[in-house]
């Protein structure tokens, strides 16, 4: 396959960026999207040029490192997958593909297609964990949790923190990411003690990082590689109302 690529190149966080054209020749339809970029980069390195910087790690769709907006859609055209699981057979010979980084004030570009997603880490550090001392590990069956509840908690826990929700949202909102963690912990007994302070701290942190608000369009759900539904966002509101209603210390 021969493809025409338009790729965002940006030397550093403050440098101006622009789309540059590249030709990708000798591409096998069996290659993954990232392998295709590897081939392009090998060509650039052979010519003594600067390779295109992009994030990747596991390349099997579970780590959440890869983060490309392909033809205007985060993670590309396939639903429920990360871009590393997108394969070149999805394209036709001669296609033009535009590749951009996640774009959000809270995700500044580090270089080319790599963005700094540590804002997500700070949201989790603000309250997305359980820190109560619950003693030793309880017996496996001592705290019964119904199947319906743990399935819901696990569906929310499926978030890999890739940031596609922010990238797809017209407001660059982190509400789906935040809602997934809040929902997961609110469903489980371990999460109850810090339930109110968690939602307060995480919402404040997300706002302070410069993420936007939510317009209920659901673009985030459509691009989420783990297909986490926006009912997780609705839960933030319910948790917030409960937290304010019950008041604090």
């Amino acid at each position: 396959m021969r493809l025409k690529l338009r790729i965002w190149r940006q030397a550093g966080p403050t440098a101006p960026g622009r789309l540059e054209d590249y030709a990708a020749d000798d591409i096998s339809p069996d290659m993954s999207f990232l392998e295709m970029l590897d081939v392009v980069n090998e060509g650039l390195v052979r010519q003594g040029k600067d390779a295109i910087a992009f994030d990747s790690d596991c390349r099997e769709g579970i780590c959440g490192m890869c983060s490309l907006v392909v033809n205007g859609v985060p993670h590309g055209p396939d639903r429920g997958t990360t871009v590393c699981q997108l394969h070149m057979r999805r394209y036709k010979d001669g296609d033009t593909i535009t590749i951009e980084p996640w774009r959000a004030r809270a995700f500044p570009v580090v270089k080319d297609l790599i963005v700094d997603r540590s804002a997500f880490d700070r949201i989790i550090a603000a309250g997305g964990y359980v820190s109560v001392n619950a003693g030793g590990a309880p017996d496996g069956n001592a705290i019964p949790i119904s199947k319906a509840i743990y399935e819901q908690a696990m569906d929310s826990a499926a978030c890999i923190g890739c940031g596609a929700c922010v990238a797809a949202c017209k407001n660059a909102s982190a509400h789906l990411f935040m809602g997934a963690k809040i929902s997961q912990l609110a469903r489980l007994p371990q999460g109850q003690v810090e339930r109110a302070s968690r939602v307060a701290a995480m919402v404040h942190q997300a706002d302070a990082e410069g993420f936007g608000s939510c317009s209920n369009e659901g673009e985030c759900e459509a691009v989420c590689p783990k297909e986490i539904p926006i009912s997780n966002i609705a839960r933030i509101t319910r948790e917030l109302v409960k937290a304010v209603w019950r008041g604090g210390e």
Partner: peptide, 14 residues
């Protein structure tokens, strides 16, 4: 922090 929630993005939405 809980009272300041009333000025947050989530409360605005509500």
């Amino acid at each position: 922090p809980r009272l300041r929630l009333l000025g947050s993005s989530v409360a605005t939405k509500l």
